[in-house]
Simulated scan of single mutants.
Amino acid sequence: MMTASDPQAARLFAALPIEDTAAQARLHARLVAGAQHEGLLDVAYRTLVTPVGTLLLAATEQGLVRVAYDSRDHGGHAAVLADLAERVSPRVLEAPGRLTDAARQIEEYFEGRRTRFDLALDFRLSRGFRRAVIAHLSGIGYGRTESYAQVAAAAGSPKAVRAVGTACATNPLPVVVPCHRVVRSDGSAGGYVGGAEAKHTLLTLESAA
């Protein structure tokens, strides 16, 4: 992953004592500004503390490309960043400024003040049938649910119920693209990329509206 577009700033950053956090913050801001100015920042990221854990948010110039739970079973956020570096671009840098609006809208959602996201989204991490499923999910309204079978039919493959489950499990934009609103035909919650407790929290939040 990219660490700097300004070699001098990078050397100074590396030489700073760990406890000199204010100076590190200033130099990091210089690195981000330099990367943006030179067109070297392809993927910006930040983290956000929420009721379902700390989420990693990442965006390209096209829009929000990744929302990730901190799953220790799958390597946590470090593994997500490595995957973005491989699949999107190695020029990845912590640059919260690009994600200010996304973070604000997600916070509003958890506060019960937002029922619909208004964000540019970059869907490049989903293809084929999974992309069709992801596209349909955004149309499932706040406080509503659909079964895996209903989503399969809407995506054009009524028999592909298991594939819908896989698409939801690999949804690159959970919370914002609401795969948590897909449940089993018997009404039980089913699986979720963020875990059963997170899915319950999201569905409970929306049902209280």
Rank of each mutant, 00 (worst) to 15 (best):
A153C: 10
L64W: 06
E94S: 08
V151E: 01
L48Y: 06
D118R: 07
L64G: 06
L119F: 02
P90A: 10
E108P: 02
S126E: 15
P96S: 15
T170Y: 02
G156M: 04
V49H: 12
R127Q: 13
S89D: 10
R131F: 08
V43D: 13
L93I: 07
E86Y: 08
A29C: 02
V67W: 01
P51M: 08
P51Q: 09
S89Y: 04
F110E: 04
G190M: 02
A35Y: 03
G141M: 05
A15I: 10
A59Y: 01
D6C: 11
M1Q: 09
A163T: 03
D101S: 11
L203N: 11
P178G: 04
E108L: 14
T60S: 02
L121F: 03
V67R: 12
E38A: 14
A44E: 13
A135V: 09
A58N: 03
I140N: 07
D73E: 15
V88D: 00
L81Y: 06
A33W: 01
F13V: 05
N171F: 14
A152T: 00
V193Y: 00
A132K: 11
L125I: 05
S185H: 01
A14S: 13
V176L: 08
G39Q: 05
G97E: 13
T47F: 10
L56K: 03
P51S: 06
H200R: 09
R72L: 12
E206F: 10
P90K: 10
A58Y: 01
R113M: 11
G165S: 02
E197P: 00
V177M: 13
P174C: 07
S185I: 01
P51H: 05
S138V: 06
C168F: 02
A153D: 14
A167G: 00
G156V: 02
D186Y: 09
H180F: 15
A68H: 05
V176P: 03
Y142P: 03
T47P: 12
G190R: 04
F13I: 07
V151A: 07
E197H: 09
L202S: 00
G191R: 14
A4N: 06
V92W: 09
A153F: 14
A23V: 09
T100V: 08
S157V: 06
Q105K: 01
R116V: 09
S71R: 15
T204G: 00
V175H: 02
A189F: 05
I140H: 01
A155E: 02
Q62V: 11
A120L: 14
P7D: 13
R66P: 05
L31C: 07
H28K: 11
A155Q: 04
A135D: 15
L48P: 10
A153Y: 14
R124C: 11
G39S: 06
L119T: 05
L137K: 06
D122E: 10
D186V: 00
V65Q: 02
E86T: 08
A169R: 07
R124Y: 05
G156R: 01
A35C: 08
Y192R: 00
L55W: 10
T47D: 11
A22R: 11
L81I: 14
T115A: 15
D101F: 03
R113C: 06
P96D: 15
D20M: 12
T100M: 07
L57Y: 09
L84G: 04
